[in-house]
Design a protein around this nucleic acid. Sequence first.
DNA 1: CTGAAAGCGCTAACAG
DNA 2: CTGTTAGCGCTTTCAG
Lengths: 355, 355
Amino acid sequence: MSSRAGAAKGRGTRRYPTRDEVARLAGTSTAVVSYVVNDGPRPVSAATKERVLEAIEALGYRPNALARSLRARRTQAIGLIVPDLANPFFGELGRWVEDRGFDGGNALLVGNSMGSEEREQRYVELFLQYRVAGLILVPIGDGRASAQRLRESAVPVVVLDRPVPGLAVPAVLPDNVAGAAAATRHLLEHGYSEVACLAGPDGLASSEERVEGWSRALDEALVPMSGRLLLRTAFGRAAGYRGALELLDRADRPRAVFVASDEQAFGVLRAAAHRGIRVPEDLAVIGFDGLEQAAFTVPGLTTMRQDVRAAGELAVRTLTDRSPQPAARTVRLPVRLCLRGSCGCPDKLEEGGAW
Amino acid sequence: MSSRAGAAKGRGTRRYPTRDEVARLAGTSTAVVSYVVNDGPRPVSAATKERVLEAIEALGYRPNALARSLRARRTQAIGLIVPDLANPFFGELGRWVEDRGFDGGNALLVGNSMGSEEREQRYVELFLQYRVAGLILVPIGDGRASAQRLRESAVPVVVLDRPVPGLAVPAVLPDNVAGAAAATRHLLEHGYSEVACLAGPDGLASSEERVEGWSRALDEALVPMSGRLLLRTAFGRAAGYRGALELLDRADRPRAVFVASDEQAFGVLRAAAHRGIRVPEDLAVIGFDGLEQAAFTVPGLTTMRQDVRAAGELAVRTLTDRSPQPAARTVRLPVRLCLRGSCGCPDKLEEGGAW
DNA sequence: CTGAAAGCGCTAACAG
DNA sequence: CTGTTAGCGCTTTCAG
């Protein structure tokens, strides 16, 4: 058995040693312990420091971050609220936010709003009580509900992925319009005379922007638009699957489709297979987001890749920069066409085996 | 402009109102404010309560969770450490952990170890400093490194997905051996005379257990084993892709393969397509994990589905239950065969459109 | 170079 | 029913 302070028997049984105990054991004052732990602000003689370090080690002392934050009047925690962590897009986003935060010594609190505004509110509230140093929000719905509560608060906030009309807060967004237009244009260049759009839900700004890009590309190419080419569904594989069936079961089914998210596109691929419709020969598909999984579908999914990493990192940086805050700024990150087989281009796995 | 206490001009500029200000405005003592906020432990007259509530509202008062926790000597936060949030398996796990924690009013701190033991350690350390009420760990490698540090601490810990030999701590694990054996047996029942195994990395307990199950099923069926049937790769799509190419490029390539994770299996499906090998006609495939995405590959991926939700919820419950802790217990959750097209069974999307 | 002590915001005795 | 007050563990002036 270890020589350390009494081994834990039950659970959560043992108390954490405090600064007082360390001081006592080292035969110094608590202030000195603090100077050692923080390497400042006052100097400590080498000998004393040594004794303190030994006491810390012997006791297994771990500074209490809560007390520290209380005293400092600021935490090192940042909050992230997303619609669903199990959605690979938010998973990837979360990874980069976490990674960047970790570099800066931040802890990351995450909340899933699960598509519920009420739940989103509750998380905003909870994180505010935890006095997070910053809050990154991928808002649900039109985000108006959270806007008010946030505007009244003192935390720096960044919204990600979706603009929130009423909120004058920095935003990091993909260039949805340009991306959707590029995807549509690419399909047109493959020679299709019309391109359908399997869009995201109504009323969600990022969804509307992608529809806008699609429609703009059609206009530019002087392709006549028609309502029957546009179908809105929820984001997500299952919704994409059902939407695709609806499109594909029509007598005049489309030959090419721009899908507003990769997740929906996975559903489209599955639906086409289910109906015996070959991709890309009978149906050309382009998705949006650039998920890692898109490189592994059969055929590979051509998609508009967002730089999720840049988005996550930029969000954290915006929160973290202690520089005088410029007026709330919206940054549009470029998306780029990532060619694979589903649109009719050659279907090669990325060289170098990037993933 | 709102009538509330001075609007924030810069960022993080405004201070949070404190309990003292609320008390002053309501003309009561701070204790009463506390009684109102916590609805106890002492009763408060309706009139006073009313005044306090108004003051709270007027000031936009939000109790400081840090101070509260410091005082209470315990937090409501739970820590989750996973290898990679962007991996859909851990994403799904995270979702359920979060969901269950949320019900209990817990905040969730998450850390990505990114496959690095050092990083895992640092997160354990960080979360301990935050005095999390409990820690859920999906350990990297053999997990031995974290074991010691955890054993010395006072936090309740649960390990998930992978056993840690040296750690006497509750564990929630899938029944890897039985699952792998069932998958292998199913492939054998399809009439294949031998079944290859594309396994996970060496030295990871959960990976070894799946190999064990595969080999056991082969033994039982009196199928001669051979080293050439077993290939280990890292978990992940890219590794699965490369491993599959290696298997498929052999002159005596296997006709049926049990793959140790769905992620790897996605790579296998892609590799087969790349080589013009049809699934399931030329190659039957079964994965492991039961990711949601597995229902959307082409063909649908037959897989051993884990009940990730049950695992996540059970982990939280184990941490949260304030009942006297029974001896560290290991729970094995059953996995069940989920039939789709990749093994040669009929390929239907789940009825009811579960997803 | 080191120590004493005030106080971060909150809760819960204890005393009215 | 309500008020006073002693800390929770830490940092940091201010004196030595």
